[in-house]
Design a protein around this nucleic acid. Structure first.
Lengths: 190, 190
DNA sequence: GTCTATAAGCAGATAGAC
DNA sequence: GTCTATCTGCTTATAGAC
């Protein structure tokens, strides 16, 4: 229960602007204007523009990596693990569509935290890759190209933030079910 | 056969830098430095930074829209049309991985051409959506949520530019075949 | 076709008043 | 906690010499 209401407000507004134009094209004056204060006032709450980006990205990246570790060590089939990964992405994209945009598009503008971010991302992708490989070995998943399967599913999941805000009428569980079907069983009718 | 060698060189170098850091974070000095000239010299070949972005994005967007129109009016099954779309994306991503990054991430920085770009994109997506719907009506494609199928496939195809440069050992046709399988028939083993 | 010099404005960030 | 005023450096772009 920290009394950081104003700081959180800054992060929220900044993330919304970063999604629209990208980190580099958003100025401190833009962020201040959206909060109806002057740019200098922002520095009473945050130390730099860079700190805003760091806070937005690292918290989400850590959440993904931690949850992926839980899923990876779950005692269920590989297909069930994939379904849990889909649900994780849908859940975070619903909670934090703005932050997801920065995570996907502005991570390269991280300075001190860039290496740490890349470690988190690699850890996440390594676990994802291992789950697919285990699924292949258990004959749950086709004996195809692991990297292409990983890339294909991950591309869709990473793009959810672009799409969810436009389709708010769609319930979260319904989206998860539809994505599971499309990503795992494909779209061809048999 | 225009004698625009230098201009093309500028566009190529700029696209490479835009892919790495995004349009807004790349300065005219960055582009000039990569060409080993001074920033002022760029203006002998192009009129503004904005013109560089416009040239990179609009040419690719027009290519996608034109080719999609050809595919849409082809006299083949819907599944075959989808396979042609996959091949189109793989082909362009191989030819122009750098430009694809700007098309995906920097279109919002277009000024005069923004509306035109959105028209091209909408035309492309409308044709894609129609192909899926025709496939459903013809019982070639499952009776699922059209928007989710469209979104899922398009997310993967739009992200190809991120992935192709790292996997140059993979042949284009092999990538097309693997993507067709994963996107259309899914990854589950039966 | 490239250069130097420079204009005019905007960027992130700080100091100190209230 | 927000303000005004300001610093310093970087931005796109132009003018004119070579």
């Amino acid at each position: 229960m920290k009394k950081e209401g104003r700081k959180d407000e800054i992060l929220k507004v900044a993330a919304r602007l970063f999604k629209k134009k990208g980190y580099a094209a958003v100025t401190m004056r833009d962020i201040a204007k959206a909060l109806d204060i002057k740019a200098a006032s922002l520095y009473n709450h945050i130390s730099s523009k860079q700190e805003i980006l760091k806070m937005i990205i690292i918290s989400i990246a850590e959440e993904f990596t931690e949850e992926m570790n839980v899923i990876y060590t779950n005692d269920v089939s590989s297909i069930e693990k994939l379904k849990k990964i889909v649900a994780l992405h849908v859940n975070i994209a619903y909670k934090n569509s703005y932050g997801m945009a920065s995570l996907n598009n502005d991570w390269m503008h991280l300075e001190e935290q860039l290496e740490y971010y890349l470690e988190l991302r690699n850890s996440y992708e390594d676990n994802f890759r291992s789950i697919i490989k285990e699924g292949i070995n258990a004959n749950e998943i086709i004996h195809g190209n692991t990297e292409i399967m990983l890339f294909s599913i991950l591309s869709t999941l990473r793009s959810l933030y672009l799409w969810i805000p436009k389709k708010e009428e769609l319930k979260s569980e319904e989206l998860v079910n539809n994505l599971n079907q499309v990503l795992i069983d494909g779209i061809r009718n048999h």
